[in-house]
Structures are given as structure tokens and as C-alpha cells.
Simulated assay, not measured.
Amino acid sequence: METMTSDRVLLTATGVRKIYRTGSVAVTALLDLDLTVCHGEMVGVMGPSGSGKTTLLNCLSGLDDIDGGRVVVDGHDLFAMSDAARTEHRARTMGFVFQAFNLIPVFSAVENVELPLLLVGRRSRDARRRALEMLDRVGLSHRVGHRPNEMSGGEQQRVTIARALAGRPAIVWADEPTGNLDSAMAGQIMDLLCELNQDEGQTIILVTHDFAIGSRVPRLIRMRDGRLVEDLHQRGLAAGADTDLHSG
């Protein structure tokens, strides 16, 4: 099945710069980076360690400040907002999937998924119903009452995906979402992300160092030294090609 995309722009980054400073030392992590992503796209970001992949995700989502440029997501200029407004916008329009899962240990799966909905003012009954719907969507309807330490790594990552999608975000950011999983479980998580993108048109931007994962995304961005050096539209890449994509 072809990925569902539209020509309606969801994200525009123009001339984005990010500089990290430690004492008198300044390191440029992003340098005059331009990027446009449309609704329904699934975009992979790859590159060597230190190339700026995670920094790109953090800056484009508004988790980190930028030192220059402009980022517009879903019609809102992120860095023209106050910190409070940007935080609220992020909570209502973005979902996040991280390598470390970041689940609350004392909460059950359904409680972890419904919590972000409650924090943005959803009624408890509605939040619980939506959380149960999403856990069923990711194949965990039989695990809704289990805590993280009672689930496998793959199951925990499915909970984080359900949590990220529960609020029907405009965009989902995934930072190394398969990094803590074995290859079989990583493949299953990638199957799920591709399915959500293809069947439901969910926009996903995925950071990965894994070439097998990067080869499955319809659009692959390659970074090096804080720059976007290639933007590929692909149906899949041959295994073993361009080993420079691997990070150490």
C-alpha cells in the first residue's frame, strides 16, 4: 500500500541554527538547515554520531531553543511563542516516542496512555476510552492493567506509541524507537509505525542509526556535521549500501 501523503505543508524549517556553548567553546550542531514536511509523510533521519539527528528532532519539535531561523508546525511559529504557549502547543499537536520508553513505573499501561490526555483537560471517561482504543490498536488490549516491569521491551514500546498517538497529534517524533530492542522486535515496531503511517496517514519523523530501519521509510534525510546533505524519496535501499549512514 502506498503511503498516504498530501501536498499540504505541516512543518517548515528555514535557516535553523543551533549552537552549544561550554565556556569559551562553541559547537554548531545545526547549520542553516531548511526542511519541509507535508501531512502524511514518514521521514527517516540518519547520519553518523554527532551529525545532529537528535538535535534536529529536539529543535523542530520545540523541545530545545534555536539560535537562528524559523520553525513553523501546523501553522504555528514555535519560537515566536512564549515558553508556556509552545509547551501547550506541543502537548496538543505532537506525540513523542523515545528509545528509553519513559513510562511511569507505578502506572499501568492504560494509565500511562491516558495521562497526557488528562493533562490537557480531557475528561477522565473520555481519556480512559481513548487509551483503551489505542492499546487495542497496537495489539495490547490484553495488557492494559500491566505495569511496565511486567511487560517486554517490545510491549513497553507499543505502550509509548499508543501514548504518542492517543491525542491524535499532527506529528509524531520518534527518536531511536527501536534502539533498545532486538532485531525481531524492532521489525515489529517498525511494522506498526509503517502501518499507522500508511493506513491512517499519521505524519512521523523518525531518527535512527539502523540502516535496516532507514531503508523502510518512504523519505530518508541524511545528515552530516549539522547539515542536511541528502533528501531521498525511496521505496527501499539495498542492504549494505553507503555504510557511512551507520553511527558509532
Rank of each mutant, 00 (worst) to 15 (best):
L228Q: 04
I205E: 08
T22Q: 09
V71T: 14
H209T: 13
M134Y: 12
R21E: 04
M190W: 10
L193H: 11
C38H: 15
C59K: 07
V113C: 03
R8S: 15
A164S: 11
V71P: 11
M190L: 15
V110N: 02
R143V: 09
Q157C: 12
G236A: 10
G75I: 06
A241K: 12
S51W: 07
N102P: 08
A174V: 14
P105D: 05
L118T: 04
D34H: 10
M81C: 05
V207D: 02
E88I: 11
E2W: 05
S61H: 09
D77W: 00
A109M: 05
A238T: 11
L193I: 14
N180P: 08
H146C: 07
G68H: 12
V217C: 07
C59A: 11
R90W: 06
R130L: 05
A13S: 07
R92H: 13
T203R: 02
M1H: 14
F98G: 07
S51P: 08
L232N: 03
G167L: 01
R137N: 02
R92M: 04
L57Y: 09
E133A: 06
G23L: 07
M185R: 15
R21P: 01
V172Q: 09
K18M: 01
P169W: 03
G95K: 05
V25H: 13
S183K: 15
A162L: 02
V207Y: 04
E150Q: 15
V113N: 10
D32M: 02
D231V: 00
Q99V: 01
A109N: 10
D182N: 02
M81G: 00
T3Q: 08
Q188Y: 02
D244W: 04
D83W: 01
I104W: 05
F96R: 01
M190Q: 13
V9N: 01
N197W: 09
N102Y: 13
R8C: 08
